[in-house]
Amino acid sequence: MLVADRMIAGALMVLSAYFMWHAVELPIGWNGRTGGPGGGSFPFWLSAVMLVCSGLALLRSFAADAKASFFFDMSMLRSVLAIIASLVVTIALIPIVGAYIALPLFLFWYLRIYGGHGWVLTLSITLLTPVVIFFFFEVTLRILLPKGVTEPLFFPLYAMFF
């Protein structure tokens, strides 16, 4: 799949150009006569090397004897995309409905709907995980996870453990 190879090399070129564009906000040359390189020079020149190398990688893929470095297993690509989509939805939901709704929803979707596991396994993991997370992070480590609209529901628990 040379197309995908080229797309990745192209994306890396765009990324390095973007880095270079932002790096010039600080001096990229020599800082005075004796001060050494300026703050922007490290990111700028390394991005420049990256730009050149990914450009070469792109050129190489057009050579006559270029071989594709990889293939997607098309039948599994759907699964990969489903996981990525569910991950994005879960992370987006966390600040709104809170980690204690979003994560069990993800687990339920993943185990029951996507994975097709039995109810016992699904429910035990879905219900146990938030409890373990609560005691590990909130009670022991005092790290509060985002709760969004469910915050008021936790007030009695806070009163109990803090």
Binding site: I83, L87, T90, I91, I94, P95, A99, L103, F106, L107, Y110, L111, Y114, G115, H117, L121, I125, T129, I133, F137, L141, I143, L144, L145, P146
Partner: peptide
Amino acid sequence: MPFTVLCSIVIVLCIVGGFAPSQKM
């Protein structure tokens, strides 16, 4: 154990574990 069970736990640990040190979404 089916791989999907392990995957789901790893993903949840990644999300929570990634949030914990800096506490930033």
